[in-house]
């Protein structure tokens, strides 16, 4: 139970970070934390205690449902690519505007 609570708390922290941080890098990192926290939450829910790992073993234990873990690997790949792409976008933004602050960025847009 405690691990589920931790995962939900991390989701809350990440959402707070996305909604308040003024720095683009911080937003992107909070975004990555959010994706990781969602994945953590479901891995924790899926890995029920009392079951075996989903690999064929000699002992006659019942394995856990392997589908959520297979899906989470795909989700991790997606979250990594989104993070990589948004960091690339940030590099471009820094190249054009020379700032990493959301608000400075908006004021630069208005002056054009």
């Amino acid at each position: 139970m405690i691990d589920v609570i931790i995962a939900i708390a991390v989701i809350g922290v990440a959402l707070y970070g996305i909604a308040t941080s003024k720095n683009i890098i911080k937003t992107i990192i909070c975004f990555n934390i959010l994706q990781a926290a969602v994945i953590l939450l479901f891995i924790v829910i899926a890995g029920t205690t009392g079951y075996d790992i989903p690999i064929l073993t000699s002992e006659n234990l019942v394995p856990v449902d392997p589908l959520p873990q297979a899906l989470m690997i795909t989700a991790i790949v997606i979250s990594a690519s989104v993070t990589a792409l948004s960091l690339m976008f940030f590099v471009k933004i820094f190249h054009y505007y020379g700032t990493s602050n959301w608000e400075t960025l908006i004021s630069k847009d208005e002056s054009q």
Partner: peptide, 30 residues
């Protein structure tokens, strides 16, 4: 500059939507 900014906004906001969607479908799966 403007298109990069718009692209970042588009990517982050839509991906946030997709994270929320992912949350929903996994709840549905369980």
């Amino acid at each position: 500059g403007i298109s990069v900014k718009a692209g970042l906004y588009y990517l982050l906001f839509n991906s946030l939507g997709m994270v929320i969607y992912f949350f929903g479908i996994m709840l549905l799966y369980f």
